[in-house]
C-alpha cells in the first residue's frame, strides 16, 4: 500500500501514516505528572478551604498553607494582624496563596510539565500535538507567563515569612514538627533560589562574568541548584503536603507531636 502525501504541492512531507512511531512507553511520564499534579491540587484545595486544624497552639506550628494567617479565625496564629474578613471563600493566607500559585504556574519547569501532561502540547517528543492550531506564549493569556519574574520576587518574600514561621515554632523547644517545618523551609528556599528567573537575576543577565566575580560565583551556585529545579519542584510539593498533613494531624489530635526537647 502506498499512502499519498499529506500536503498538496511539490514541498510535501514524507507520507507516514502512523501518528507516532515511538515504541517506548512515552505516555508514562505525562500520565504520572497528570496524576501527581491533580492529586496535589485536590488535596491543597480541600485543605485551604477547610479553615481548621492549621495551627498547633502549644508549639506554634503553623502550616504553610495558612501562612501568613490573616483572618479572625487565626487566633494566636495571626502574626501580621487580621485584616481579612471571615468568609469561607477567603483562605486564611489569601494575600500570599495567589502569588505562590502564580509562582508555580509560571515556573519554567511546571510549564513544561502541564503543557505536556494537561494540555498535550505536545504530550511527548515526536508525538503529535493535541491541538490543531498553536500560538505558544505569543499572545493573551499565555504571554503573561513572562510575569514569572514578579512571582519570583513575591515567592522570595513569602519564603522569608515561612522561615519566620519555622523560627517562631522553634521558641517552644524541639519536636518532630520543628524538623518537618525546617526541612520544608530549606526545600522551599532551594526551590525558590533554583528558579530560572533567580539564576538570571543573580548573574545570568551579565555579559562579562569576569567583571563581576561575586555575582559570577552566585550565578554558578544558582546554576548548580537550577539543574535540580525539576526535582526540587516535586520535592517541595511533597514537603508542603507532608508538613501540612503533620500539623493537621497534631492539631486535630490524631496523634501527638514527638517531642525531643520540651
Amino acid at each position: 500500500m502506498t499512502t499519498t502525501a499529506t500536503r498538496p504541492g511539490g514541498r510535501a512531507r514524507a507520507a507516514i501514516s502512523a501518528r507516532t512511531l515511538r515504541t517506548d512507553r512515552w505516555w508514562l511520564a505525562p500520565l504520572i505528572t497528570f496524576l501527581g499534579l491533580s492529586a496535589w491540587v485536590a488535596y491543597a484545595t480541600v485543605r485551604v478551604f477547610l479553615h481548621k486544624w492549621f495551627y498547633v497552639d502549644e508549639y506554634h506550628y503553623l502550616t504553610p498553607f495558612y501562612s501568613p494567617c490573616l483572618t479572625d479565625r487565626c487566633g494566636d496564629a495571626a502574626e501580621f494582624g487580621t485584616p481579612l474578613p471571615n468568609f469561607w471563600l477567603i483562605p486564611e493566607a489569601a494575600l500570599t496563596l495567589p502569588f505562590l500559585l502564580l509562582f508555580r504556574l509560571t515556573c519554567y519547569y511546571y510549564r513544561k510539565a502541564y503543557y505536556r501532561a494537561f494540555w498535550l502540547s505536545p504530550p511527548a517528543c515526536a508525538v503529535p500535538d493535541g491541538h490543531r492550531t498553536y500560538s505558544g506564549e505569543t499572545r493573551f493569556p499565555l504571554v503573561f507567563q513572562n510575569a514569572h519574574r514578579y512571582a519570583f520576587y513575591a515567592a522570595f518574600l513569602i519564603s522569608i515569612i515561612n522561615t519566620w514561621d519555622a523560627v517562631r515554632a522553634q521558641t517552644t523547644g524541639l519536636g518532630l514538627g520543628n524538623v518537618v517545618l525546617w526541612v520544608n523551609v530549606i526545600m522551599l528556599w532551594a526551590y525558590t533560589l533554583s528558579c530560572h528567573s533567580c539564576r538570571h537575576i543573580a548573574g545570568g543577565r551579565l555579559k562579562h562574568f569576569s567583571k563581576h566575580p561575586v555575582r559570577y560565583r552566585f550565578w554558578t551556585f544558582v546554576s548548580k541548584l537550577n539543574t535540580r529545579h525539576m526535582q526540587l519542584a516535586w520535592i517541595t510539593l511533597g514537603t508542603l503536603a507532608l508538613t501540612d498533613f503533620y500539623i493537621m494531624a497534631v492539631s486535630a489530635g490524631w496523634f501527638s507531636d514527638l517531642r525531643i526537647i520540651g
Binding site: 517528543c125 500560538s135 505558544g136 504571554v143
Partner: peptide
Amino acid sequence: GFCNITKCCTEVCPEHIKITDNAII
C-alpha cells in the same frame, strides 16, 4: 514566544547542549 519550553529540543540534542535551560530561558 512560540516556545512553550517543553524541552524536546534538549532531549534530542546529540551534543547535549542545554538548549532550553541555557539559551531559550
